[in-house]
C-alpha cells in the first residue's frame, strides 16, 4: 500500500513540475511538428501512398520528440540536485522508476495526441482510429520504459544530452520497426493475421523491458 502512495507522490510531483513551466512538453510539441514539416520537404511525400510511408514519418516524429522529454527527465533533476533529495527520502527505488516512467508515458502521449491529428491533417491521411490508437499506446509504453532507464543512465555521464540518443536508438530499433509495421497495418486496414508477428514482438518487448528496467533501475541511481 505504501508503495502505491509513494508512486502517487512521485507522479504528482512530476506532473506539478511540468504543469508549472510546461517547458518540456511545449518543446516536444514544436519539435514533432518540425519533424513532420521537414519530412514533407525531404521526401516530397505528395503523390506517394501515405499509408505506406506515413507510419515511418510518424514514428520518427514520435521518437525524436519523445527523446527530448526523456532527456530532461533525469538531467533536470541532476541539474537542480533534486535527485539526491529524492534518493535520500525513504522511497522504494522501484516506485521512483515507475513514477518517472509513468510521467514520461503521459508526456509522450500528450505530445502524440496533438501530433497524430496534425499528421492526419498535414498529410491528408484517411484514418481508422480503433486499432491504431492501441498500437501507438503499446509502442509508447515500451519506449517510455526503456527511455526512462536509459535517461537515468545518460544523466549520470558527462555528455548527457548527446548520450541518450546514442544509447537509446540501437536498443529501440526492434520496437520502432514493430510500431511502424503495426501502424502500417492499421492504416492500410490489413487483416490482423498479416501483422500478428509484430504485435507479439511488441507485446513481448513491452513486458520484458518494463520488468527488467524496473529491476535494474536501483543499480543506476545508487550512489
Amino acid at each position: 500500500m505504501i508503495f502505491f502512495r509513494q508512486l502517487y507522490a512521485i507522479i504528482a510531483k512530476e506532473m506539478q513540475v511540468e504543469w508549472r513551466t510546461k517547458e518540456t512538453l511545449s518543446a516536444m510539441l514544436v519539435f514533432a511538428l518540425l519533424v513532420l514539416v521537414i519530412f514533407n520537404f525531404a521526401f516530397d511525400l505528395q503523390g506517394v501512398d501515405i499509408r505506406v510511408f506515413g507510419p515511418g514519418v510518424l514514428w520518427v516524429a514520435f521518437s525524436f520528440s519523445g527523446i527530448i522529454g526523456l532527456g530532461r527527465s533525469f538531467a533536470a533533476e541532476r541539474d537542480r540536485g533534486s535527485l539526491d533529495g529524492m534518493l535520500l527520502a525513504p522511497v522504494d527505488r522501484g516506485a521512483i522508476f515507475l513514477g518517472k516512467a509513468f510521467a514520461n508515458l503521459v508526456f509522450i502521449l500528450a505530445m502524440e495526441i496533438v501530433t497524430l491529428p496534425l499528421f492526419v491533417i498535414l498529410f491528408n491521411v484517411p484514418i481508422e482510429w480503433f486499432p491504431l490508437v492501441g498500437y501507438i499506446l503499446m509502442g509508447t509504453l515500451g519506449f517510455a520504459a526503456v527511455g526512462t532507464l536509459l535517461s537515468a543512465i545518460a544523466a549520470s555521464t558527462r555528455m548527457r544530452d548527446v548520450m541518450l540518443p546514442v544509447l537509446l536508438f540501437p536498443v529501440l530499433v526492434p520496437l520502432l520497426v514493430a510500431s511502424v509495421k503495426l501502424t502500417q497495418g492499421a492504416l492500410q486496414n490489413l487483416p490482423f493475421s498479416d501483422y500478428q508477428g509484430w504485435f507479439n514482438l511488441l507485446l513481448a518487448y513491452d513486458v520484458i523491458f518494463l520488468v527488467v528496467a524496473y529491476l535494474v533501475f536501483e543499480f543506476v541511481v545508487e550512489e
Partner: peptide
C-alpha cells in the same frame, strides 16, 4: 560509478538481442 551503469546497459543490450534477431527476420 560508470562500471555499474555500464553493467546495466550491458543487460539492456543482451535482453535486446533476441528482439534484434527476430525483428529483421519478420521484416
Amino acid at each position: 560509478t560508470i562500471a555499474r551503469i555500464a553493467a546495466v546497459f550491458t543487460f539492456v543490450g543482451v535482453i535486446d538481442v533476441p528482439f534484434i534477431m527476430i525483428a529483421p527476420r519478420l521484416w
